[in-house]
Write a protein that binds this DNA or RNA. Structure first.
Lengths: 386, 386
DNA sequence: CTGAAAGCGCTTACAG
DNA sequence: CTGAAAGCGCTTACAG
């Protein structure tokens, strides 16, 4: 039976021993206080430069790495951020929130303790408790679609930033996609393409994304000579494969469609097929999500608005850290633009885009919105000149 | 300027103070040693039961929660697992690996420190170093598609389990989907449906998944009276929208297609359309991934083999913990079957399935494979009797 | 310029 | 049955 060994015994047996500050101090012939000062850059004018240099050299040679557990116990700052999500990991895009959060955290010397609540309040409470026990300096509270939420009181004494959600109490900073802008931009693009009868294929669920995208669509039309016509607006249940789409096409003959998401855009392609229209010429279509999967299926390729998941994750961590450290925007190092390299998976059409594609809001904002990028493919007619 | 406050000062100012063991001890009129014993369940026959009860009551009333940073420093076991992934978060399915890992970790009292390497070896090295400094007891090394990898030497002295990857050196335990089984099962299903000319729409990239699924497909055919015919096998570049598919259909008239993934299955639907065949009757199609997105688009709904991402994440954590604690399979509590509840997002077709759907391999295995479930929809003709 | 000492909040031999 | 003490590996006033 090896079952009687304790974890430290096992570590010992396996030879897991980190070099400690004490060993560095001994090798350098100084006190650990001196080593600590040098290695933490607090030696300016306090420790003889040649000694400092020697200590650094020895620490490096010995492969010394500070034990963060010990440091955290002493300093009560863990540089750990709790990343609480509902079911984010099960949605195909939202991994990018985590990716953006991880990148920003790494750049600023923080790390993420991630935890999933599956929308179970009791589980959430327990999980938050545990992350707190690990000393998290603050929390990211990431939802998988744009909605209003209540932050558990448990977090009242800690900085929190919401991602793709808004604090119902209005007390916490948050970042969301500019849903209104999505509808507006997409519709403007269709107007520029010369479309005169632009339909909206909406979602039939009551979420912020739906109502705001519709509002943006409507605003663009209201501003235009064409105006808004509610006969062109549909709330579509994706499972109801036929629904009202054919009737809308037969009655109104739209020449442009703004779709709540890429999946719904597919319905426009199907109608084009049925009616002998060519997408990108007779019928222009704009989706939302810019899903590579769908791109692999639809032909011509779908012009679609990309949601700024990476950017939201990235911004939210920077905001959170600015709160934790009580510093302003300017105190944090510049964002380094993260770029995704090429990947084998691109060939399998499995990759979702990551990296910063849209300008980030200032960290001074408390209810930030990220604008979304319309990715041009071939499903919208070229913009008419002037 | 508030920038002069240190993090502990800020915490103080915000009133972030956890109840300590010392306070519990004082309130109970005992020593902290006694409190520690009671709260860690080491009081059997060592502390008077009524005192123990009293201490527990007081701890609860005071809302005492042990400071894990302090405990970890002392015990040198952090119950933190490093979750290293390449670009997993950018692929739509693989969040489920993390979800399964998180669920298993939670059930066993561990937590995940997640870090992304973006396939950059230098970044990987640094990130692993940091997670080690936080005292991780072991590492999960998760890749986003099945391949052979080298584990960095940095991890030589710590337990590691690979997810959706195999250790080239053969030294580390790993878990992967049973790719061969996928090809075999899908092809058998098509044979049972009475198909006589079954094509394989493969991928044109050299990954384990491709060659093994093909091998399984071939084995099923070799076993059958029909036999294998390489004219029915295609390596398809998803971006090359036309490719060899139409020629294959014209020349061989397949009545069944096993597709490397759901996106490629779409090509079979398109051919059916072109040739006036009804999918699910004249032409049976099986995909892999069971992507809800694609399901929302293809009609009739696609029968597809689901990859066991959740299961792999779940198993790998249990395996890792059994290594860390040097316990066998039986020492860990039974897996609780995780079930995903209903969700608004299901209406948006955004959810990927999570939870345990396939039997988990025993923890004694070192190169585990999870079998994959074929999810029946409507794209395959009913199995013929007998 | 440098070190001895206290202490962060725990756990655990050791002694009684 | 219980407590005093040492110690995990750091940081940081304090003293010199």
């Amino acid at each position: 039976m090896t079952g009687t060994l304790s974890v430290p015994q096992i570590r010992e047996q396996r030879g897991i021993r980190m070099v400690t500050m004490k060993e560095v101090a001994e090798a350098a012939g100084v006190s650990i206080a001196t080593v600590s000062r040098v290695l933490n850059g607090k030696d300016r004018g306090r420790i003889k430069p040649e000694i400092a240099r020697e200590i650094k050299r020895i620490a490096k040679d010995l492969g010394y790495r500070p034990n963060l557990v010990a440091r955290n116990l002493k300093t009560r700052s863990s540089r750990i951020l709790g990343f609480i999500s509902d079911e984010i990991a099960t949605t195909p895009f939202a991994g990018r929130i985590m990716l953006g959060a991880q990148d920003a955290a790494r750049e600023l010397g923080y790390i993420l303790l991630t935890v999933n609540t599956g929308n179970d309040p009791d589980l959430e409470r327990r999980q938050i408790g545990i992350v707190r026990q690990y000393g998290a300096d603050g929390f990211l509270y990431a939802m998988m679609y744009h909605r209003k939420v209540d932050i558990p009181e448990q977090l009242d004494d800690l900085p929190v930033v919401l991602v793709d959600a808004e604090d119902r109490a209005g007390a916490r900073p948050s970042i969301c996609p500019d849903e209104y802008g999505i509808g507006y931009t997409a519709t403007r693009r269709l107007l520029d393409a010369g479309c005169r009868r632009i339909a909206y294929f909406g979602a039939d669920v009551p979420i912020v994304a739906q109502s705001e995208r519709l509002a943006g669509y409507r605003a663009a039309l209201d501003e235009s000579p064409i105006g808004y016509d509610d006969r062109l607006v549909l709330a579509i249940d994706e499972h109801d494969v036929y629904g009202d789409v054919p009737r809308l096409f037969d009655e109104c003959r739209p020449d442009g469609v703004f779709c709540f998401n890429d999946v719904r855009a597919h319905l426009a392609y199907r109608e084009a097929d049925r009616l002998g229209l060519t997408v990108g010429r007779d019928l222009s279509v704009v989706g939302v999500d810019n899903q590579p999967f769908i791109a692999g299926i639809l032909s011509p390729a779908l012009t679609s608005v990309e949601l700024p998941h990476y950017e939201m994750g990235y911004w939210s961590v920077r905001k959170l850290i600015s709160l934790i450290e009580r510093t302003g925007d300017s105190a944090l190092p510049e964002p380094s633009i993260a770029e995704g390299g090429p990947s084998l998976l691109a060939d399998l059409n499995l990759m979702l885009p990551a990296g910063i594609h849209a300008p980030l809001p200032s960290l001074t904002q408390d209810r930030a919105q990220v604008s979304c990028v319309l990715v041009e493919k071939d499903s919208v007619a070229p913009a008419s000149q002037g």
